[in-house]
Design a protein around this nucleic acid. Structure first.
Lengths: 233, 233
DNA sequence: ACCTGAACACCGTTCAAGT
DNA sequence: ACCTGAACACCGTTCAAGT
């Protein structure tokens, strides 16, 4: 067996180029997103990080949307699920879990948006789903409603984060928000009496109050709203 | 008054190149979106349609997100607001308006997604907002809650459309849905007992039933959930 | 003030060809 | 089966220069 020749290192930064694997690719993508934000997690940028060409990634990843969904699932491990087994009011604990999920999305602008398009289906998402369902079960929410409600709860959290996320790190979106505020203030009392009456209240309030109220509204709503054909199973 | 000279047409397709104006640009963008979908409403594509270069558009439009918001606002005129002044249960009529809005977004994949990022603030949006607020007022929902609720209602409609829209015209998203369904079916009863129990119910049901239930849940929820510090005004 | 050409700095995805 | 180079067909946005 001939000894393998050890040439001088051609790459100083990445001395050993690891073989491509799906978990490895996604781990690198998560790193990249933490370092530079989701908007930099592109096929080309990621391929460069892995010392290869973009075409190579298509063996392991269907497309960019699927890649982003996998990245999100990888981050969902950071959601605090301890309230599930803690003591106290089940609604309060459910809100805690949901707030933790929402905060994660808040801190990672862009992730929330991609979550609305391509839902993750990995272990991170399943654990979060199970946690929400466990708390709804503890609260004796009928199974049929619980199944649909958990979807609405996570969707509300995701959509809220998607809206806020883009408004935070993005000057343009801020200006659009200002445009909406201005439009509401300028609304004529004759053509838009309700908007004129409510005024700033329409766009006011600290985000966390609105978020908390929203979660409690959803839970209360489900308790008071039977499904079209209620299956109690 | 000198007669205007009629030179030979230099451009057969677009005999008169109209001056650029913001309303004109947005009208062309709406046309383009109806013809080819929002994903084709790019600065470059739109500029080509207007016989100019992309740079010219930046005098009238801040960026692509703002353009898309303006397109959406232009389409909101098609939402059926007649239930506002009709007779019958106010909740049913509110749901009718919201379903009309949702359907509009359903038919125009991509528009919903952009609505979550850059909210419109034009006449179309204000009219829709006023309609929802008028019905909530008719239902005697306290002002403070109505102000926040209308946001949640429209957000729910928008997010639902954004999810479904991408799933419809997009084969990739379908496969991701399948991945989620498969993941839920394969969930172990030991690690994920609630998911295993509820099973297909988590992803089941005709979309319109879930949508209707969601709207009614939100309305009921608001009726039963005071704001953190309720201002009754 | 408005409009433009040209450039800068990127994208996703496919495919034939190699190993 | 996996990996690659190269290509195809696009993007958004800026800026100096013109009118």
């Amino acid at each position: 067996m001939p000894t393998q020749r050890h040439g001088p290192r051609s790459r100083r930064e990445r001395p050993a180029k690891p073989a491509l694997t799906r978990p490895g690719i996604i781990a690198t993508a998560v790193e990249l997103m933490r370092a530079e934000g989701l908007e930099r997690v592109t096929m080309r940028r990621l391929a460069a990080e892995l010392d290869t060409g973009p075409a190579s990634l298509y063996v392991y990843v269907r497309n960019t949307a699927e890649l982003h969904a996998a990245v999100l699932d990888g981050m969902l491990g950071a959601v605090d699920l301890t309230p599930v087994t803690a003591t106290g009011d089940w609604q309060d604990r459910l809100v805690q879990v949901l707030v933790s999920y929402t905060k994660l999305l808040f801190d990672n602008p862009g992730l929330a948006q991609s979550a609305l398009v391509a839902r993750p289906s990995g272990p991170g998402y399943l654990n979060l789903l199970e946690a929400v369902l466990a708390l709804l079960n503890e609260g004796a929410v009928p199974d049929g409603r619980a199944a649909w409600l958990c979807d609405v709860l996570l969707q509300f959290a995701t959509a809220t984060a998607a809206e806020q996320a883009t408004r935070d790190h993005n000057t343009e979106a801020e200006q659009e928000m200002d445009a909406l505020v201005a439009a509401i203030r300028n609304a004529s009392a004759e053509t838009h009496p309700r908007i004129a009456t409510l005024g700033d209240d329409l766009v006011s309030g600290p985000g966390s109050d609105r978020l908390d109220w929203g979660f409690r509204l959803l839970i209360n709503g489900a308790i008071h709203t039977p499904r079209p054909i209620e299956q109690n199973r």
